[in-house]
C-alpha cells in the first residue's frame, strides 16, 4: 500500500477542508489588495499613446497584399486618436495617418472627405490641401473632394480663385449638388475674375431646373452686367478727364451715364476712387 494514498484516503475530508481554507484565504487577500492597495500600474503610462503610423510605402510592403485591411486598422486608430483627445492638443500624427490610410487605400473616399474637414481645423491647412489634391488624382470622378477642397481654400486660405476653380471642377462631376456651379460663380465674383463669374451665372440661369437657383443666377448675371457697364463708364471718364471719378455720382454729373443703376440683388455698388474699381460687397 502506498502511504501517500493512505493518508489522502483516511484524511481526505480534512485535507479538502484545509485546501479550501487556503484557497479562501488567498481570495480574501486578493480582494483586500484589489480594494485598498495603491494602484501599481502608473496611470501616466495608461493615459495616452500617440499613434506611430508607418509611412505609406513601408505600410504597403508590410501589408503583404492586405492593403484594405491595414488601411481599416489605421482608420479605426485615427478615429480613436481624434475622438480620444490629445492631451497636448496638437494631434501631430493626424496628417501622417490620413496619408498612410489613403496610400494603402487610394480610393477610400470617406478618408479624404474626413481629412479635408478635420485637418485644417487642427492647423494642418497645407496638408489638407495636399490630401485633397491626392484625392482628386485617385478619385477623379468624386465631386466631394474638389467641393471640400474648395471650402478649405475659401475658409482657411481666403483664396477665392482656387476655391472657385475647385467648385467649377466639382460642378462638372456626376452627382454634384446643383448649387456647386453657383458657388463657383460667387467665388469668382469676389475676385477680378468677374467675366468668368458672369458666364457661369448666365449658364446656370439658362440650364438650371431649380427655379430659385435660376432666378438668383439671372439676377447675379444682371448685377454683373451692370457692374461691367459701370466699369466701362469709369474707363470712358478716365479717358476724358485723365483722372478717376471721385464717386459714382461724378459719372452722372459729367453726363457719362444717366443715373446710378440699381442692382437687381439690391446690393450697392462699392466704388473705390483710389483704384477706380468697383468691388463686390454687402
Amino acid at each position: 500500500m502506498n502511504s501517500k494514498k493512505d493518508f489522502l484516503t483516511s484524511y481526505g475530508a480534512l485535507t479538502a477542508i484545509f485546501l479550501l481554507a487556503i484557497i479562501f484565504l488567498g481570495q480574501l487577500n486578493y480582494d483586500a489588495w484589489n480594494a485598498f492597495a495603491a494602484p501599481t500600474i502608473p496611470t501616466s503610462l495608461n493615459n495616452y499613446i500617440e499613434p506611430q503610423p508607418l509611412s505609406g510605402n513601408t505600410a504597403k510592403i508590410a501589408a503583404l497584399g492586405e492593403n484594405e485591411f491595414l488601411a481599416n486598422i489605421y482608420w479605426l486608430e485615427l478615429i480613436q486618436y481624434y475622438g480620444g483627445g490629445d492631451p497636448s492638443g496638437k494631434y501631430r500624427k493626424l496628417p501622417d495617418l490620413y496619408n498612410t490610410i489613403t496610400d494603402l487605400s487610394p480610393k477610400f473616399l470617406t478618408a479624404y472627405q474626413n481629412g479635408l474637414l478635420v485637418l485644417p481645423g487642427e492647423g494642418f491647412v497645407d496638408q489638407a490641401i495636399a490630401l485633397g489634391k491626392k484625392g482628386e488624382e485617385n478619385l477623379p470622378n468624386s465631386w466631394e473632394i474638389p467641393y471640400y477642397l474648395g471650402l478649405d481654400y475659401h475658409i482657411y486660405k481666403k483664396d477665392y480663385v482656387a476655391a472657385a476653380e475647385e467648385f467649377t471642377k466639382a460642378s462638372k462631376l456626376p452627382g454634384a449638388p446643383a448649387n456647386t456651379a453657383y458657388f463657383a460663380a460667387l467665388y469668382y465674383s469676389q475676385t477680378d475674375q468677374r467675366k468668368i463669374s458672369y458666364d457661369l451665372f448666365l449658364n446656370i440661369a439658362q440650364t438650371s431646373t431649380d427655379p430659385y437657383l435660376k432666378d438668383r443666377a439671372q439676377k447675379y448675371a444682371d448685377h454683373l452686367a451692370i457692374t461691367f457697364s459701370l466699369q466701362d463708364a469709369i474707363t470712358a471718364f478716365q479717358n476724358k478727364y485723365h483722372r478717376n471719378p471721385n464717386s459714382l455720382q461724378d459719372l452722372v454729373d459729367k453726363k457719362i451715364i444717366n443715373n446710378i443703376p440699381v442692382s437687381p440683388l439690391g446690393f450697392p455698388f462699392n466704388y473705390d476712387s483710389k483704384s477706380g474699381q468697383i468691388s463686390e460687397g454687402k
Binding site: 492586405e66 484594405e68 485591411f69 481599416n72 482608420w75 479605426l76 478615429i79 470617406t110 474626413n114
Partner: peptide, 19 residues
C-alpha cells in the same frame, strides 16, 4: 470593429472578415 468606424461598417467588416 465596424460599429466604431464612423459609418464605414461594411468596408471594415469585409476587410477584417476576409483577412
Amino acid at each position: 470593429a465596424g460599429s466604431v468606424s464612423l459609418g464605414q461598417d461594411l468596408r471594415v467588416i469585409e476587410s477584417f472578415g476576409l483577412t
